[in-house]
Design a binder for these strands. Structure first.
Length: 274
DNA sequence: CCTTTGTCCTGACTGC
DNA sequence: TGCAGTCAGGACAAAG
């Protein structure tokens, strides 16, 4: 389940092919969340990779050659992985897309569940419908306690579901929502408009530190993450509550509870979170 | 049958 | 009245 830190680590792992020119694109399966455009191989052929950026959980690969330019949007869904191969190797079952470069290296997308996406945007990628209305990046200063508190005023739904709304702030997936609420000692069922400014301060701080801790862990495990076998696994983190139903709280020892909120699992400690 | 993710859509409702 | 915002729920992608 790639969350923002894994996406960012994936982006870092791809940086070595910056400046390379696309030699050949192979699409083995177009059926992703949205179909991979039939014209993608033709579109990318001969373009040079200029920039690798990230917005929310999208990796944005900007390509250009002469007049032709645009950006490839890559989303990993819940089971997607991008590996950078030093040279072509035979594709396996769920390897849906290869982007081969002139120097022989290959970016390969593997996504068993195919919830991911590969899209092409000519022109300004920030105008793409999927990106245009997104909220701020969680690690930027525009995402702060005042912003959160202000935007929670009109929200009556539970803080857990509200904080996962990408129009409010991006990159807070199911795992980090539970984790940062625990760290901020806020009960996930709390109506968003009941949060005090002080609670918003704690929550923003914990979202930022939870994500940046994970980013640091990702950066330091980059070599393992982009393993020599070209088969990166996701770095395993120790969670306070996520997936720990019935196990003892790492702070107070009471059992971790799980509930459903908006058709998603939420994990929390009843005695630590108020 | 269940679970998992992010995103989009619909219909109902609220408040200005 | 009209409109924008909000919310709950469901749909959807596929596989284990």
């Amino acid at each position: 389940m790639p969350e923002l830190p894994e996406v960012e680590t994936t982006r870092l792992g791809l940086l070595p092919v910056l400046g390379q020119t696309v030699a050949q694109v192979t699409v083995r399966n177009h059926g992703m969340r949205w179909p991979i455009p039939q014209s993608l191989p033709q579109t990318l052929q001969g373009l040079t990779l200029q920039k690798l950026e990230r917005r929310a959980k999208y990796i944005l690969a900007s390509m250009q050659s002469g007049e032709a330019s645009g950006t490839l949007l890559l989303h990993l869904g819940m089971s997607g992985r991008l590996c950078l191969l030093e040279q072509f190797t035979p594709a396996e079952k769920h390897d849906h897309l290869d982007i081969a470069f002139a120097d022989g290296r290959v970016i390969r997308l593997r996504d068993p569940r195919r919830f991911g996406a590969v899209l092409w945007m000519a022109g300004d990628v920030n105008l793409h419908p999927l990106l245009a209305t997104l909220g701020p990046e969680p690690l930027q200063d525009t995402f702060n306690a005042r912003y959160l508190h202000n935007n929670m005023r009109t929200r009556t739904a539970a803080i857990k579901t509200t904080m996962m709304d990408a129009h409010l702030v991006v990159g807070v997936g199911n795992i980090y929502a539970s984790e940062s609420l625990f760290r901020a000692r806020i009960a996930p069922q709390t109506p968003a408009n009941k949060l005090t400014l002080q609670q918003c301060e704690r929550l923003v701080a914990e979202i930022k530190s939870t994500l940046s801790d994970a980013l640091k862990a990702g950066g330091s495990s980059l070599r393992d993450f982009f393993g020599a076998d070209g088969n990166p696994g996701y770095f395993q983190q120790t969670y306070f509550v996520y997936g720990r139903t019935g196990e003892p709280c790492r702070v107070c020892g009471k059992p971790i509870l799980s509930i459903r909120q908006g058709q998603r699992s939420t994990f929390y400690c009843k005695s630590c979170q108020k």
